[in-house]
Design a binder for these strands. Structure first.
Lengths: 326, 326
DNA sequence: CTGTTAGCGCTTTCAT
DNA sequence: ATGAAAGCGCTAACAG
C-alpha cells in the first residue's frame, strides 16, 4: 500500500540504514549506491513518513505558534513572518488561537508538548508566572513574540515599547499640541499597552494627558466614546494604541466638526495596511510586524541548533511614519 | 526523564493496554481500576505522546491548511474559522502559505502527506488538473475552501460566485446606474473572479460594462488606474472585487471631484472590517469568510469519520449589505 | 474486564 | 561504507 523505507531498501538492494543515510546525509555513502537509492526512491515515489521519523529522532520539525487571534491584521502579519522563515528552515507551524485567555494559553503549552513540537513561538498580552512555569515544565524552547516580559526571563523579540510611547508623545508635543489623549484598550489587560503608557507619561505632563479606555479596542465602540470626550474637552492631539482606534479618533474628530490635522492631530500605533488606505492617511508609530514573526522564528532556529546567540532578547526598531493626520 | 504510558502502567499496577483504554475510552474498564489509572496519570503528570500515537494509529488529528496568504484579511478570517472548529473537534492545524504558486501548492500536498495529516483544507485562486492529480496521489481527504472547482470533483465550500456577480450588477442597475466598471484582479488568475465576471456579464449589457484589471489587487496601484478611467468615461457605478479595491474606487471618484454615492455608486465584494470603518461606509456583497473556514472544517470532520454527508459541495449564502457608498 | 504481543516507519548505535 | 538490530511510545488485535 504505502511505500516505506524498507521497500526502497529492497528495491535498491541495500539496507534500510543506508537509505536513511542518503535521505538524511547523516553519513558518507558511496556515490554509486547513493545513486541506486535515489533511483529507487524516484521509481517508487517514496516519501518519508515524518511521524515515524519524529518518533525515532525525537524531532518533529514542527513548531507551535500560539497567538491571541489570527484574524487580527497585526497578528496575521506576524504569523506570515513566522511561517516564511519556518519554511526557509524546513519547519512547519501548528497554529492556535488563545483569545488571550490565560487558562487556554497555559493549556495549549501542554498540548504542544503532546504534539512534540520542537519549539514554541508565543504571543500574548499578559505574561504571568503561570506561563513561565508552564514553559519550564514543558521543557520546550520558547520565543516570546511581541509580548512584554519585564524580567526578560524568556528569549523574546520586541520593540522598546516604553520608548515608543515616549516618542509618540514627544512627536505631538513638538508639533504644538497642548492637550493629549491616549486611546487604548483596557488597563492592565496588556502589559505592552502599559509600557507605552509609561513612556508617554514620562514625556507628557500629567495635566496635559488624558486617557480613554476602550476595552475591546474596536472601531465602533471607540467612535462614540472618543466623540464624547472630544466635545467636552480641548484635546488637540490623540495617540491611539492601534490603527483601528486611530481611525475611530479621526472620524470622531471630524464628526464634531474638527479638522484633522489642523485642529486635532492623530497618530496611531502599528501601521497595518489600514493606516495608508484611509483619509487622511494616518501618521503612525510603525511596528515591524512581519519582522516580529520572522526574527522570532529565526531566533528559535538558533536555539534549536544550540547555535550561539548574541542576544536572547532582541529589540527591533520602531519608527514614525509621518503622513497626513498630524 | 519523560514519563511514558509504561510508567503509568507500572504506577497503577495494570498493563499499558489498560492505560491506553482509559486514555481513549476504547473499551470498558472497571470503575475502580480506571480510577487507579487516572490517579497514576495525575501523580506522574503523564501526557500522551501524540507522535507515537500517530504512528501506531495512523491518525494524527492534524489537518493541513494551505492558503495563498494568511496576512490577507479575507484569508485570516477563514483560517480563524477553520481553527475554531478544528479545536472543537480536537484537531490541530498546520498552516502554510502558497502565495498562489501552483508548483508550491502541489508540492505542499506532498509535504502534508509526509506529515501524515488526516485531511487538507485547500484554498487557491486557480485549481488545475495538477492539483487534482496531487490530491488523488496523496489519498488524503480534501475540502476546497472558497475556491472554484467547476467540475465539482472535490468536496468544497463556496458561495454561488456567478450569482453574486449577477446580484451586484443588478443592484447597481436597479439603482439607476447606466455605465458600470468592474474592478478586479488579473483575468484568468482567479477562476473565482472569472465566475463573478460571468454573472455580472449575464446581467449587464456589454456596452454598459467596463473592466479594469489590477493585477496585484492593491489599493495604491488601483487608485491612479481607476482615477484615469473615471475621468475619461462616464462611469456611474463601480463593482470592486475586494474591499480594498472598493476603497480605491471611492477615493478615485472623490479625487476627481465626484461624490459617492450621488455621482458614482461603489460596491465591493467581501465585507472585511475595512468596509465598515471607512467613509462613506461601503456597500458590499458580504462573503461568509469565517463560515467558509468553519463549514469546511466541519465538512472535513464528517469526511474523516465517514459520516454520511448530504452534500459534498456546500453552497453558502452571500448577501448584500447596503451602506453609504451606493 | 485485563494482559501479552506485535507492529507503526523510521533513526541510531554497534558491528563488520 | 554498509548491515543488523534495538528501540522511540503508543494502538490494536488476540487471548484469556
Amino acid at each position: 500500500m504505502t511505500v516505506t523505507i524498507y521497500d526502497v531498501a529492497r528495491e535498491a538492494k541495500v539496507s534500510m540504514a543506508t537509505v536513511s543515510r542518503v535521505l538524511n546525509g547523516t553519513a558518507v555513502v558511496k556515490e554509486d549506491t547513493k545513486k541506486r537509492v535515489q533511483d529507487a526512491i524516484a521509481r517508487l515515489g517514496y516519501r518519508p513518513n515524518a511521524v515515524a521519523r519524529g518518533l525515532a529522532s525525537k524531532k518533529t520539525r514542527t513548531i507551535g505558534v500560539i497567538v491571541p487571534d489570527v484574524s487580527a491584521a497585526f497578528v496575521a502579519e506576524v504569523v506570515r513572518g513566522i511561517e516564511d522563515i519556518a519554511t526557509m528552515y524546513d519547519y512547519h507551524i501548528i497554529l492556535t488561537n488563545s483569545d488571550g485567555e490565560t487558562d487556554r494559553e497555559v493549556d495549549l503549552i501542554g498540548t504542544m508538548w503532546e504534539k512534540q513540537v520542537d519549539g514554541i513561538i508565543y504571543m500574548t498580552n499578559k505574561l504571568s508566572q503561570e506561563h513561565i512555569s508552564a514553559f519550564e515544565a514543558a521543557q520546550i524552547p520558547v520565543v516570546l513574540c511581541a509580548t512584554e516580559d519585564l524580567e526578560r526571563r524568556i528569549p523574546s523579540v520586541n520593540i522598546d515599547n516604553r520608548q515608543s510611547g515616549y516618542d509618540a508623545g514627544e512627536y505631538l508635543l513638538t508639533r504644538g499640541c497642548q492637550t493629549l489623549a491616549y486611546v487604548t484598550t483596557e488597563t492592565g489587560y496588556s502589559v505592552l499597552a502599559d509600557r507605552r503608557g509609561d513612556g508617554l507619561a514620562r514625556c507628557v505632563p500629567a495635566e496635559q494627558l488624558n486617557r480613554i479606555e476602550i476595552p475591546d479596542g474596536r472601531y465602533h465602540t471607540a467612535l462614540p466614546v472618543i466623540k464624547e470626550m472630544l466635545s467636552t474637552s480641548n484635546i488637540d492631539g490623540i495617540i491611539a494604541a492601534s490603527d483601528e482606534l486611530g481611525l475611530a479618533a479621526i472620524h470622531a474628530a471630524q464628526d464634531i466638526g474638527k479638522n484633522v490635522p489642523r485642529d486635532i492631530k492623530v497618530m496611531a500605533f502599528d501601521n497595518t495596511r489600514l493606516a495608508e488606505m484611509v483619509r487622511p492617511e494616518m501618521t503612525v508609530i510603525a511596528q515591524p510586524m512581519y519582522d516580529f514573526g520572522a526574527v522570532s522564528m529565526r531566533l528559535l532556529t538558533k536555539l534549536l541548533k544550540d547555535e550561539p546567540v548574541e542576544n536572547y532578547s532582541v529589540t527591533l526598531l520602531h519608527n514614525i511614519v509621518e503622513r497626513q493626520s498630524t
